[in-house]
């Protein structure tokens, strides 16, 4: 990275990146203006960028261009899509928001159907099949651990009234033990998720430090040493 070889846009980009990184790091001193400024700018830039992307990647190629240069079938299809799209705009005003309900209903209905269908055929059935064949895939030890972990976790989410200690039967005591094991598996799972989040955060921090160090080493220090 050489500042003399960099364009103004790249150099401005690097300066902004460096600055906003420092602004975000300022949160270590608590909530401050720089941090709020950085977060607001990021949200605004992201929203603007998403709007531009949506306009240039969705609306123009899939809604406007077919009407202008598409064939008849493509035009009818586009018009049939354009009408509910326009009705969605009526949600802006409470008076006309009822007109957008059918389009919302279509979107929600289709989305729910797609999500449920995908969950059933993409997660539930395959995961059930994988749990059945756990010993075949993972061996006896891993399979046993997976079976115990699965059953114990399911038993942990069995909600019922708590009986008296004296009235606990043997079956109830076994169920309670499995619940405790399930709780342990859940704790390990949450620990793994937290570790993954922490690793991701540390990685982002490292990436930012590398950026900062690179920026300082290649732009600031040469300028200062010069």
């Amino acid at each position: 990275m050489n500042a003399a070889e960099m364009s103004i846009a790249d150099l401005s980009g690097l300066l902004l990146s460096f600055s906003f990184t420092i602004f975000v790091f300022s949160y270590i001193f608590g909530d401050n203006l720089l941090f709020r400024l950085a977060t607001h700018i990021f949200i605004g830039v992201a929203a603007g960028y998403a709007s531009i992307v949506t306009l240039y990647n969705v609306i123009l190629p899939q809604l406007i261009l077919p009407l202008l240069s598409g064939g008849r079938d493509e035009m009818f299809l586009t018009i049939s899509l354009l009408i509910p799209s326009l009705l969605l705009l009526t949600k802006i005003s409470p008076r006309t928001s009822r007109l957008g309900n059918p389009a919302i209903a279509i979107l929600v209905g289709i989305g729910a159907a797609v999500a449920i269908g995908g969950a059933i055929f993409g997660t539930l059935f395959p995961q059930t099949s994988a749990a059945i064949n756990v010993f075949e895939k993972n061996g006896f030890i891993n399979g046993t651990i997976l079976v115990i972990g699965t059953l114990a976790t399911l038993l942990f989410f069995q909600f019922s009234t708590r009986g008296k200690e004296s009235s606990l039967t043997g079956m109830t005591q076994v169920a309670n033990a499995l619940r405790w094991i399930g709780k342990a598996f859940i704790a390990v799972t949450f620990g793994a998720l937290f570790a993954g989040v922490y690793i991701a955060a540390i990685t982002a921090l490292i990436e930012r430090f590398i950026f900062l160090w690179t920026f300082v080493k290649e732009l600031v220090l040469p300028a200062l040493l010069r």
Binding site: G122, P126, K137, L193, A200
Partner: peptide, 18 residues
Amino acid sequence: SAQAEPIIHPYVGGENAQ
């Protein structure tokens, strides 16, 4: 990402895995 790995890991497996 490391934070999504524990959740996606059940889908990962052998030849017939998703």
